[in-house]
């Protein structure tokens, strides 16, 4: 069947199927078996072509969608450093770079703040020396009565505030681990995007070939099948989502400790 006869889309295929079916019934009614077999062959061909046409259509659509995703940032709105970032992988890599830089900036400030806290501790020591002097003077001056005790109490309160501040600053520091966690997840997505891109190019090449050839047997992506079969059960996967759908993943540190103690740790 020439390619020009090929109906566009699955609706066209259905219409053609109806027409050919009627034709088949009418030739069989007059006993023309040869024509009937020709019609069956035509239907077979048209089925393949419709399928390949649809694959080609979807592939081109997907390619266009990806191209438009890459170009959806208006050029006049871009910073210098964003210009030229035309694909998703680059953008995700940029997110990792940016979060890493910002995390370090935050930690720089935490380090500076912790140094200030250390300084406050030293000042508190010097304050203690002065206080003991007040304590000695208190007995000599009536007006100073009770000042030593009250100041000591204030000093203790201040020291406990400084200790809490140190704890909070350490909390801010540890919270920067989000950059590692999100970075690992983003890296996996970058790998996926790169693989999809590669497969898409292959699919486009295949679609271009099958559009003009009918009856071709298309092999599945054997490389992926091989990869799945060889998957190592303990291969590093990065952060995983625990939950009912993922019973193999532990929920928290307590679960890790329980599991390890069951192993004699």
């Amino acid at each position: 069947m020439p390619e020009t006869d090929l109906p566009q889309g699955l609706d066209g295929f259905e219409a053609l199927l109806h027409a050919k079916a009627n034709e088949l019934v009418s030739v069989l009614a007059v006993g023309d078996v040869n024509s009937a077999l020709d019609i069956v062959n035509d239907l077979q061909n048209v089925k393949h072509l419709a399928f390949y046409n649809e694959v080609g259509y979807l592939t081109r659509g997907l390619h266009e969608a990806i191209k438009s995703f890459s170009g959806d940032v208006p050029s006049d709105a871009r910073e210098d450093s964003i210009q030229g970032m035309t694909d998703a992988s680059d953008r995700l890599a940029y997110v990792m770079e940016l979060t890493e830089k910002t995390s370090h900036e935050t930690m720089d400030r935490v380090d500076k703040s912790l140094a200030l806290v250390d300084k406050m501790d030293v000042q508190s020591g010097r304050f203690a020396d002065l206080l003991s002097l007040v304590g000695q003077l208190e007995s000599e001056f009536e007006g100073l009565r009770g000042v030593y005790d009250r100041t000591c109490q204030l000093k203790q309160e201040s020291e406990s505030t400084v200790a809490k501040l140190r704890e909070e600053l350490t909390g801010i520091l540890v919270a920067q681990s989000y950059q590692d966690i999100t970075g690992q997840l983003i890296r996996r997505v970058i790998t996926l995007v790169t693989q999809v891109e590669g497969s898409l190019v292959q699919l486009m090449n295949m679609a271009a070939k099958v559009e003009s050839i009918s009856g071709l047997h298309v092999e599945g992506p054997t490389e992926n099948k091989k990869q799945n079969a060889k998957k190592d059960p303990i291969e590093a996967e990065g952060p995983q989502l625990a939950g009912e759908n993922n019973p193999e993943v532990v929920g928290n540190q307590d679960d890790v400790d329980d599991l390890l103690s069951s192993l004699g740790f």
Binding site: S177, D180, I181, E237, G238, P239, E248, V250, Q253
Partner: peptide, 28 residues
């Protein structure tokens, strides 16, 4: 951040002395 039971067991068998999952707290 690897948190599968199978992985924790494999790490224990490989000879780690402790296993902490990310994100962790300073106390842990």
């Amino acid at each position: 951040a690897e948190a599968k039971r199978e992985q924790i067991i494999a790490a224990a068998q490989a000879g780690v002395n402790g296993y902490v999952i990310k994100p962790f707290t300073a106390a842990v």
